[in-house]
Write a protein that binds this DNA or RNA. Structure first.
Lengths: 249, 249
DNA sequence: ATTTCGATCTCGTTT
DNA sequence: AAACGAGGTCGAAAT
């Protein structure tokens, strides 16, 4: 949205396709967040291909190049185009008169085409948004808890590094236990399944080889809880689990 | 959106907070998709916690209980609440007059609270959407390609089952090679990283134990391509790779 | 530009 | 209700 002294909305009710085209183009030029509601079909081709048959939908075009096509259900858009895409808006004066909103990008080559048969509403929103988002309860918070109070993992644990690189990728927390044995810690902010165990296993394997250590390396999964299958996998591979929440209860 | 004979939009420009409250409530009652644009703060508490300072944002409330708070950038909403949530809309006549939109659910317990200081625009959209989405280029398409032409994997490959259950989960495609050796196939629609190798490895390990077969089991990853690290992991664990696209070029 | 992994991931399917 | 994996995942950080 273009920063303006005061937030504003420019709207059109039941415009002609040509009037809608003009309003949308104007909105784009002014750096507004533009929405259109009406009957449309949507075609996508790129990483996959899709066709969406005619229906009434809400289309949002952000000034950063994002396009979102929303129906009446679900959190996710039915179709979309990511930030950074280039747009073209025009009226197709063919057999069926249509308002066409096209969005393309390269790398990867993708094209989204929304064809409005009928437009009920167009709006262009301008405003300012300096408000920052603060979020807590993330994996970073769980990591900080452990760095601050290593005993939460186990008495005597000493963290030595975060994001320690191995040939299999970066280990969340790397340290030593009471007895000086190397410990690889994999953190998850919520209940984990088999995938997290596989990840931990890769890191332990890699570090074992990287160091070709005398002492075997311990692998500890830290998460609020694990699924049955994950627990079994941990057991199979002599990995450990410590229950810990990203936030204090 | 409530099915109506014709798509429609009921809108309000720069309404009072009380008028906005009424329009939003009416829209909810009519099963409309309701949007509001204005200056607001947003608080979330549930799986994590967040606070979003004041800014002009676009809030979408779907009739299925979904709420999306969008800013001017990014494909993802800044804050959201999933389908199935219950809502409450009211005016807070406290120190600062505010229009409050609250959305809650249990399991997991989550609460989103949008507080409008100023509302620029409210709209309630009704329409019908029977249009179906058809998508191609998915993992299912890749699977179908192999089932139809098993030689694409390798000459003599015979698929025996899809989604074959093992103690580690379901294998995408299970079959036998030319020599009668069991083959576990893991499919990915796009270039894969280390995670997919870990997945294949789990399945091969599990099946090896499930069958305690005499002949060792082959694991084949089928994807358009692999990253370097993934290629190395495949090599380390004697797993194989076959390059195949989900769609014919 | 690519790789890698987290995410209030979401979503569908199955148990 | 929980578990498991796909996704046009998105987004961010590092290379």
């Amino acid at each position: 949205m273009t920063p303006t002294d005061r937030a504003e909305a420019v709207t059109l009710e039941s415009p002609s396709l040509e009037a809608a085209r003009e309003a949308i183009t104007d909105g784009f030029d002014r750096g507004a967040l533009v929405t259109a509601f009406g009957r449309c079909t949507v075609d996508y081709d790129g990483r996959a291909s899709s066709r969406l048959e005619a229906g009434d939908r809400h289309v949002m075009c952000k000034p950063d190049g994002t396009t979102l096509v929303h129906g009446s259900e679900g959190q996710q858009p039915i179709n979309w185009q990511p930030p950074g895409c280039d747009r073209d808006v025009f009226c197709d004066h063919g057999d069926a008169h249509q308002l066409v909103l096209e969005s393309v990008r390269s790398t990867p080559a993708e094209r989204l085409c929304v064809r409005f048969h009928h437009v009920v509403h167009v709006a262009a929103f301008s405003g300012t948004d300096d408000g920052a988002l603060t979020l807590s309860g993330t994996e970073a918070d769980l990591r900080d808890r452990i760095l601050e109070t290593p005993d939460l993992l186990e008495p005597g644990f000493r963290p030595l590094a975060t994001e320690r690189e191995t040939s299999a990728g970066a280990v969340d927390v790397y340290g030593e236990d009471d007895a000086g044995r190397p410990v690889v810690v994999e953190l998850k902010r919520r209940r984990v399944g088999p995938d997290a165990v596989g990840q931990l296993r890769r890191y332990v394997d890699a570090l074992q080889r990287d160091l070709h250590a005398d002492a075997s390396i311990r692998g500890v999964l830290v998460a609020p809880s694990v699924t049955d299958r994950a627990a079994r996998l941990l057991d199979d591979h002599d990995l450990e689990f410590v229950s810990l929440e990203p936030r204090v209860e």
